[in-house]
Amino acid sequence: MDKKTTLTQQMAVAQEPEKAIVERKTGALSWVAQNGIFIFLAVLILVASFAVNGFASLENLTSILNRAAPIGIVAVGMTYVVISGNYLDLSVVAQVATAGVIFLAVGNEYGLFVAALAAFAASLVYGIVNGVAVGYFKANAVIVTLATTYIGLGLLRFFSGGSIFFGNPDGPMEQFGQAKLGPIPASTFVLLAITIVLSILLTRTNFGFLVKSFGVNEKATRLAGVNTDRVIVGAFLVTAFAATLAGFVFAAYSNTAVSTMSQGFDFRALAAIIIGGTSVFGGRGSVLRTLLGVMFVSVLNNILVLVGISFGYQQLALGIIILLAVTLDVLSRKLGEK
């Protein structure tokens, strides 16, 4: 360092110490909002293992994993949109179904490779349309993705005739769908792999850093010379790619695909993300926590099914859990400010 810098430092030391820092109390509430998922999940699993008949069987656990994979893949992808402060991507419903139908309909005719190309091309379109409308046009993400959901589903139903597609028996889709390593289905490895990849992308790369930074403060990010609009397109693209992968996994598992296959994916993914501790206000969150959130939602669903509680109550429960989780987040922020 040159002399002048040392001068500044000397000055700094020589001056009266000012009240330079406001210590922030990190209250119990904010700890729960961020880390509560660990406890919630542990308690849920413990209670279920003892109290719920049939929960702790290998078969049941495999089935939980099978069901968790597609919704989980969607959720870890959509975490990017949530962290960027753009609430959510409702159109994942249309994206998963589009991918599922393409993988089976095109895959049966032209093989898996062509189908994969077609499916990812479709997800590229979704990501770009959503991202450009939200990023470049600064349009409300909820409304934009509501519109693209209906555009996408309408087109899908039109081209598919609303019919159900079945994969070729013993075709590559079915083989993948039924593949297991021990009791663990292949789809679980896909979920883990994408979680790891997206987690590294979020925490170790410039792109992930910018997604977070945009979520914290859009203006400051832009005024650091960042093309923030492109970052938003990136976040929607990540979500779209993940949704396509989810469509593949989902279609492979049942070896069928139909335009209505992914109903409710948007909410369940959002519920998993929020329960995992990612803030709906953007800027704070993690892909790994979303994975835990997914496990929570899946285990909860499984328990409700096992004890014979109907679909309606499950839906009701998730809605209330979303509201409570967000309330917790808001209250912890309010207390943190004081």
Binding site: Y313, Q314, Q315, G319, V326
Partner: peptide
Amino acid sequence: LGMLFALSGLA
């Protein structure tokens, strides 16, 4: 949105 979900469950 939470309400949307909860109410559809209620229905």
